[in-house]
Amino acid sequence: MKTWLFNPFIYIAGLKALLIGFMFMTITLVISYYSKTHFDGAIDAHIGLKAPISLYALEQIIAWGSVVLTCFIVASVISKSAIRFIDIAGTMALSRVPMLLVATIGFMPVLHNTKPGQLGNAVLVIGLIMIIPVIWMITLMFNAFKTSANIKGTKAIVGFITALLVAEILSVSLNQMIRPLLLK
């Protein structure tokens, strides 16, 4: 059970993981559109801004794509194994399953009725609850990186943190570029 929750990549990877991951990403997209939850960064989630569904879709593709790209580049440099791009792409798509929970939590009315600068206790509690699926996703991403690239120990930790930081910068920058174009 623990393995399936945190490292399902022992059993599922490649195209199968990609299809399952995309299926969950599509469900998350629909839910996030109605709950106004934006995944505007590799590991980000922000609530409130009304936007066309195309922006929500692009945000998810950018969030997933930037992690895939940076993890593949880092893994190609530090791994001695023959890495397949489809394994990184598939396992990283499957790693985003916990975002379904974040998009669902986004329906909480208290999150939409809060004025900027006035954070109540309820918002803080929900914010903390939302961190749990994000941590779950990062754990899944780390295990996806380790399994797909056959990297262990300190090398895996340093490589993953580097890839994730670059992915975060890349995804946030891309989102800032596309947002004005789609919100016109």
């Binding site: 059993y11 599922i12 490649g14 397949r84 396992t91 797909s148």
Partner: peptide, 10 residues
């Protein structure tokens, strides 16, 4: 083995 391709390759 009922395992993923990268697991077996690893």
């Amino acid at each position: 083995l009922g395992l993923s391709y990268p697991t077996v390759r690893n």
